[in-house]
Design a protein around this nucleic acid. Sequence first.
DNA 1: TTTAAAACATGATATTGGGCATGTTTAATC
DNA 2: GATTAAACATGCCCAATATCATGTTTTAAA
Lengths: 237, 237
Amino acid sequence: MGKILENKPACLYCNARIHSVFNVLDNEELEDLNKHKTCSSYKKGQYVFNEQGMPSGLFCINTGKIKLSTTGFDGKEQILSLAKEGEILGYRALISDERYYCSAVALEDSSICIIDKLYFNSTIIKNNKLLIEIVKKVSGDLKLAENHLVSLSQKNVRERLAEALLFIKATYGCVEDGATLNVTLSREEIADYVGTSTESAIRLLSEFNHDKIIELIGKKIKILNLQLLIKTANLND
Amino acid sequence: MGKILENKPACLYCNARIHSVFNVLDNEELEDLNKHKTCSSYKKGQYVFNEQGMPSGLFCINTGKIKLSTTGFDGKEQILSLAKEGEILGYRALISDERYYCSAVALEDSSICIIDKLYFNSTIIKNNKLLIEIVKKVSGDLKLAENHLVSLSQKNVRERLAEALLFIKATYGCVEDGATLNVTLSREEIADYVGTSTESAIRLLSEFNHDKIIELIGKKIKILNLQLLIKTANLND
DNA sequence: TTTAAAACATGATATTGGGCATGTTTAATC
DNA sequence: GATTAAACATGCCCAATATCATGTTTTAAA
């Protein structure tokens, strides 16, 4: 469990809201939403929820970065998706009243709002505009999953790794230099997204480094040649 | 385009409805839905819609079987999902007003209802109960896609092929003998779901045949030893 | 019925990438 | 600061599987 914050951020003034499903709510609805939530902080590495658990509420990332993963076969982890500020988590399990479909772990210290389950089931679910946004959100997630699936099925590890770096850049962006990825992931985590062994991920990152496609600065990854990275990823659309 | 049927089946008396999202509608709503649809027949191999196209309506399978696939890299096909009677198709593109996310092709002669786009956007989308069913439907599809993704990422071809046969059985069931899969897929189509080469799919199906796990009767596949097939698939949940 | 074209089958070969081993660097803990 | 553990790095080997080649069977078309 995260540590509950005394001064929770107000939905009405939340910066993350603009890119979230809650952007369709009016001020009155936002005030109401605000009344039915708490906000907790999570340390890097901490679980927000676990795929064994039943949903207790709707999570919405206020600040921070979360990885969504599932435990596959022989306990091997598969990273399914990366989430950022404004994104809602755990809504599928909540709506279907099932166990979480995956686990959510903080990639850095994060603060996350938890919207009351009863409020969700009695009010949010009745709001048509919001529900349409949720359908769009799931649809988008499904499209991403399908793209990921096709890559895993048809591309080699080198292409998938390049694609993963582009995905990370697209999700979390870069720091001020406009080239260094704005997140710290271990080689193992990258491998768990790419669907390869940690050794292969390390090996290929080294190769990209030698080929001047990227520069490895400790755990930070700087994209030196974006065009070449895109070419290496062999994207077709 | 499919051939429009003169006597379209009535939603109110549709057998497929029980397992569809439309089961939450009352009789009046069903009558209304019925007024805003047409029904067309599609021959085996015919496209229902193509991933290049913009959505013209909401498809709902009345009878028949449909494969949902996407063209990956170097034109290689990836089968994403298999759909049966009662399932709706093309709803994501419709809601997000984007091109279809995948292509739909008839696996056998099928009849499919097409619900008017305007009616969908003006009426269906306003029906909260129905919208919740749609969220559940997308969530379920996403869960299936994620499971498929993890298998592609972590399992070997033999395990994935066994899993594919179990998936086909779970989707379309068996004929009267309770063992022969109730659909005809080419080896290439199976390979395109499993994410392997056609040769490997053929080879492994032959192996399963020799090992008495299945029996190959022309294009029909009969499951002889379900327990062994489940074991071969190496399922963990 | 003949012919052509798919689909299926199987062997031989090449390649990718996983797994192991071993060493080095970085980070965490006392 | 010393000690330990985790993460990173790289070489070697081998199994899994893709690709190529060739032949057979089935299906579709003329």
